[in-house]
């Protein structure tokens, strides 16, 4: 391999090393220490994990995170799939519609949170007023503990542009001949979807599912931080919120790292299980 090529790869390699691999390792080291950023870290073995186990908020945060991811994930994948199927073919105006679907995704998180805080304002918000006008008395979405977390999920559903684009690419990579042939064989819309589109789209669906699984946990932070502050009464306190508070409110970086490590392990297990299942299904079908 020539020297120029190696030179071209150096920034990428260094950057990955410094910004991803090293911090990832640092989490492991920190999780077994108590570290307040001031005094030197103290090795405490699994004491941090013991403390985390008895933290009364930790199970709540885990529960909230699982709900957030568990509800968001299927809805986001299904919505992206539905929209991609609808807007797959070339028709008049289709590009405009696609761009419109993607538009909420480009809105900065902070602006997006503010917009929804206003739209969902329980007395004056446009959505509240619009629903009232047609005779529906909406609940105070963000105020009631039962609805607050689900509201954050719903708000996030508008930002699925990236999955949508990936699925469009996936759909366009299904050879048209397959559909033509199936049509000739008398396959209906549903059958073509079931036996041609879905299997061929499966890797793409898997891709966006894994991607969401990896990112969603962290994505709960900004809306929760800006829209609800973790409340009402811990109802939207997800793991990233708790970790943030642990690190910066209480200067317990070691405990934060321990939580982060647990969080990453759970996600890793979920991804592995998901990919394993998917491979099982794929191999069971295509071989």
């Amino acid at each position: 391999m020539n020297r120029s090529l190696i030179l071209m790869l150096i920034p990428y390699g260094c950057g990955a090393l410094l910004l991803v691999l090293l911090p990832a390792l640092l989490i492991f080291a920190l999780a077994f220490t108590t570290y307040d950023g001031l005094a030197a870290p103290q090795w405490v073995g699994d004491q941090t994990f013991q403390d985390v186990r008895f933290d009364p908020v930790f199970p709540i945060a885990v529960h909230n995170t699982l709900i957030f991811v568990g509800v968001s994930l299927p809805l986001r994948v299904l919505l992206a799939l539905g929209l991609a199927l609808l807007l797959e073919r070339r028709r008049r105006g289709v590009r405009f519609y696609r761009a419109a679907i993607y538009t909420p995704t480009v809105i900065p998180d902070v602006a997006y949170a503010l917009i929804w805080l206003w739209i969902l304002n329980p007395l004056y918000g446009p959505l509240t007023l619009a629903l009232r006008a047609i005779g529906i008395d909406p609940p105070a979405w963000l105020v009631q503990p039962e609805t607050a977390l689900l509201t954050l999920v719903a708000v996030g559903l508008f930002q699925i542009g990236e999955s949508f684009v990936v699925l469009l690419v996936g759909l366009h990579n299904i050879p048209l001949e397959y559909h033509e042939q199936a049509k000739l064989d008398g396959g209906g819309v549903w059958q073509r979807f079931r036996y041609i589109t879905l299997p061929l789209l499966f890797p793409w669906l898997l891709l966006i599912t894994v991607r969401d699984l990896l990112l969603l946990t962290q994505q709960s932070f900004v809306p929760a931080y800006l829209m609800t502050g973790g409340g009402p009464y811990y109802a939207t306190t997800t793991l990233p919120m708790l970790i943030y508070a642990e690190a910066f409110d209480r200067l317990r970086f070691g405990h934060g790292a321990a939580m982060l490590l647990l969080q990453s392990l759970v996600i890793a297990v979920l991804v592995l299980v998901g990919v394993g299942l998917a491979r099982l299904i794929l191999w069971g079908r295509s071989v």
Partner: peptide
């Protein structure tokens, strides 16, 4: 290597990065 990088959610690395 690149796919592994993709699989590490960098957004979750803010805590050690901050310390770094």
């Amino acid at each position: 290597f690149s796919v592994t990088l993709l699989l590490i959610p960098t957004a979750a690395l803010w805590l050690p990065r901050y310390i770094l």
